[in-house]
Simulated assay, not measured.
Amino acid sequence: MQESIVYINGLFTPLKNAKVSILDRGFCYGDGLFETMRAFNGKVFRSNQHLERLFRSLPLIFMDLPMTLHEVNSVVQETLDRNNFKNAIIRLTVTRGINEPSFQIDKEVAPTLVIHARPHQPLPKAIYLKGVNISLITMQAPVLPGVNQSLKTCNYLSNILLRKISQMRGSMEGIIVDPILGVTEGATSNLFILKDGTLKTPATNNSVLEGITREVVLEIAMNHKVPVSKALLIPEDIYNADEVFITNSGIDIVPVVSVDDKPIGNKKPGILTKFLRDEFLKCIEEEL
Rank of each mutant, 00 (worst) to 15 (best):
R25M: 03
A117M: 04
P59D: 06
R163V: 09
L123P: 03
N240P: 03
N223K: 13
V216K: 11
G32C: 08
L233H: 01
M172G: 07
A39L: 02
K195N: 07
V259N: 06
D278L: 14
I212M: 07
D31W: 05
E215A: 09
M168K: 10
N240L: 08
A39T: 04
E219C: 09
S189I: 06
L233Y: 07
V244P: 07
H116I: 10
M139E: 09
M37C: 04
S135Q: 09
V147H: 02
T273A: 05
V226E: 10
R46G: 04
G170A: 04
F280Y: 15
D196H: 10
E219Q: 13
D81R: 15
L151Y: 00
V114E: 11
K267Y: 09
T112S: 15
L191D: 03
L151W: 01
K19C: 07
F62S: 15
P263S: 01
D261A: 12
I115Q: 08
E236R: 09
E173Y: 03
Y128N: 05
G265S: 09
M168C: 10
L194G: 07
G211I: 02
N48S: 13
E100F: 12
V208T: 02
T198M: 12
C28Q: 15
P263K: 02
P111Y: 03
N84R: 15
A18V: 00
L23H: 12
I175L: 00
L51F: 09
P111K: 01
S135C: 10
L54T: 00
T204D: 08
V114R: 06
K282Q: 15
S74C: 11
I5L: 11
Y239G: 07
A187Y: 07
L233I: 05
D261F: 12
M63D: 01
T138N: 10
Q149R: 10
H116P: 05
S57H: 04
Q149Y: 03
L181K: 10
C154P: 10
I180W: 06
S102A: 13
P142W: 04
G42V: 03
P124D: 08
R53D: 01
I180R: 06
E215P: 06
E78I: 04
K125D: 13
F192D: 01
K282H: 14
F103N: 13
D31S: 04
I134N: 06
V208C: 00
E219K: 14
M1C: 12
G30D: 03
L51C: 05
K230D: 00
G250T: 13
I90E: 01
D252R: 13
G265M: 06
N17P: 09
K16F: 14
M67F: 12
M1P: 12
D237V: 03
R214F: 03
K195G: 02
G170M: 05
N155T: 13
H224S: 14
G197R: 01
G42A: 03
R91L: 11
T138H: 11
D242R: 07
D278I: 11
S171D: 08
D106E: 15
S207K: 09
S158M: 14
M139W: 09
V20N: 01
Q104L: 14
E210T: 08
G131Q: 03
V20E: 05
L136T: 00
K125A: 12
L161Y: 11
